[in-house]
Design a protein around this nucleic acid. Structure first.
Lengths: 355, 355
DNA sequence: CTGAAAGCGCTTACAG
DNA sequence: CTGAAAGCGCTTACAG
């Protein structure tokens, strides 16, 4: 009777009930076999597995997720999926998660907060098992409140916040590598140039590395050049000026360490249009090694983030917690790598001297 | 009694039961209010809505999806999420879907088929409401079988297959625009150059446009140059040669229409290293207008795909079907747009004549 | 217009 | 080791 009622289901996929009936056991036993709960005799297991195969049975994920009130979905919150840095990371995260049986649900929280929050709600309503945050641009307050309230595993990738796990490169160490490369190439006047999209904390760490490297070499540091490429304005301390003016000033730095590749390529273009040659007149180092940094026409020397490691460790961290770990937040730091290309070279003075 | 049993739930979120109790009505009525099923008196509705608000009740999505055996999740299958073309589209699709209350689940099916199929299984097991396919690189056979078996709404974005809805630009029309631009600039010997990643059908359409434009102008066409940038080999008909040789041959085409931007930028670099100036010696047009095509150092003239329209129409099409439409497959074509930058100019002969 | 009841396909104590 | 039963939080005919 129960059987006949059930048959008006649209899709004829078999259920745990069918398997139990065919195997001549109870649903509980089938369930135990399915979940590998040990207390099933080998004979019974055989019979059940056989029935499963004969019926081509696959457990209904929706039912399982419902009864467990937890899914095998990972939520990925990302500032801008189109940004090549995020796109590279997103892809690898998806691959890693899929390899471990988890689906990946994305939420692009760029732009206005209303949309972002609505998007986050969708993610939370779907009861994702955990959340991976990529460059969420710091609206961390609300997030923290919401996510800790839900008691959801959270990992920051390429970013660090104390209230969740995190994996990122040694940011200031990477900056040191960048600046030391410039110093070795002969530069003595190096500026740090940063753009608004960069997360504040990341920005400070990179600037810290910049200062450390110069101090170690007993060279002067400059305050950060805060550039808004859209308007062309640069803020240095309390002073405001145009990038153009800086570039046209003969006392300009001979090299720029840009806080990320997007800023670096914008600077590259600004140099081009100011008639400055890179690297003959100005050297530029970027940060991230986004996918187009290696285009020959760009040839950006940059600090590479090991995307594969970031993605893998990020997924590991969040899944460990999803699957039960309850340690204090773990913070993993991995080493960056300098990639030297054609945007750096000896400063003009040295160049002449050598010639 | 039922009440007390229920209270060992971990999260104290209120359920439809709580709302019903507080409002003094049945769960059915609450459900009717929630789903806007019309047969509820205004008074009752008021009371229920009030209770919902007081309890900060939000329906349990997992339960709803389970009982309906359908989710509000859209699956996006993509060849390579890191590819800037796909990344742009993916982002906009996510934004559009979220705006309409649907979450987006990604599956990157790049590379080996085993992983791809496993990824697809995850998507299907999650009972996504519909599927959006972006450049899935043609392993269409299995896909069609699987997806039609599941009777799932499917839309192809920037691609066309008869067995699902689709939205794409007028591919051959775009190619005509590209080639006519070259003709107008003075070129008489134009080649079509294509790379392996391009989907076959797209490739043919673009080549068709190439031929049409040249024939209309009564200019000679060439067979497609099939280039594999990895090896450097070009296949033209049955002949095999190296791109380098083609470029060094004085009888080389004065302009290349590359089948997409990735191929175009590779060609640009090949020209650079062969000592050919672009556009003085060789003109290049790409296709897609990926995010970095506009970098000044690249400056690729290209046929732009209107990403926003593609994403929006794609989501519209699949959701229409998700929400009940049952028409025959619909195929939407939208116009492309030529973006002229610095990679095209007059051919060498004309240049001299003008000088 | 409203409510009682069955059902979706699993998991999870609990008995035996 | 195995099974009967309750329960997860909704939706959906069906009666009234």
């Amino acid at each position: 009777m129960e059987r006949s009622r059930r048959r008006h289901r649209s899709r004829g996929a078999s259920t745990i009930f069918d398997v139990a009936a065919l195997a001549g056991v109870s649903k509980s036993t089938v369930s135990n076999v399915l979940r590998g709960t040990g207390r099933v005799s080998d004979d019974t297991r055989e019979i059940v597995l056989d029935a499963i195969e004969r019926l081509d049975y696959r457990p209904n994920t929706l039912a399982r997720q419902f009864v467990r009130q937890r899914t095998t979905i990972l939520g990925v919150v990302v500032g801008d999926l189109e940004n090549p840095f995020n796109a590279s990371l997103a892809k690898l995260i998806e691959r890693n998660a899929a390899g471990r049986g988890y689906s990946t649900m994305f939420c692009d929280v760029e732009g206005d907060d209303g949309h972002s929050l609505a998007g986050m709600r969708l993610l939370l309503d779907q009861r994702v098992a955990g959340i991976i945050l990529l460059s969420h641009y710091g609206r961390s307050r609300d997030l923290e409140a919401t996510l800790t309230a839900e008691n959801l595993p959270v990992v920051f990738v390429s970013e660090r916040e104390e209230w969740g796990d995190s994996v990122c490169i040694d940011e200031s160490g990477g900056a040191v590598m960048a600046v030391e490369h410039l110093i070795e190439t002969g530069h003595r006047d190096i500026a740090y140039l940063t753009i608004p999209v960069l997360e504040r904390r990341t920005d400070s760490a990179r600037y810290r590395g910049y200062k450390a490297a110069l101090r170690k070499a007993k060279l002067p540091t400059r305050p950060p050049f805060r550039w808004d490429p859209a308007s062309g304005t640069v803020r240095i301390g309390h002073e405001r000026t145009q990038l153009r003016q800086i570039l046209e000033d003969p006392r300009r730095p001979t090299a720029f360490f840009a806080s990320n590749d997007l800023g670096a390529v914008d600077l590259l273009e600004a140099c081009d249009s100011a008639g400055l040659r890179v690297p003959e007149d100005v050297s530029i180092v970027g940060f991230d090694n986004v996918s187009w940094a290696g285009l020959k026409r760009i040839g950006l020397t940059t600090v590479a983030q090991p995307f594969l490691d970031l993605a893998q460790i990020g997924v590991d961290l969040v899944l460990a917690r999803v699957e039960g770990a309850t340690s204090a937040p773990r913070h993993v730091t991995i080493p960056p790598e300098l990639v030297v290309r054609s945007s750096t070279g000896a400063p003009p003075g040295i160049g002449k001297r050598l010639a």
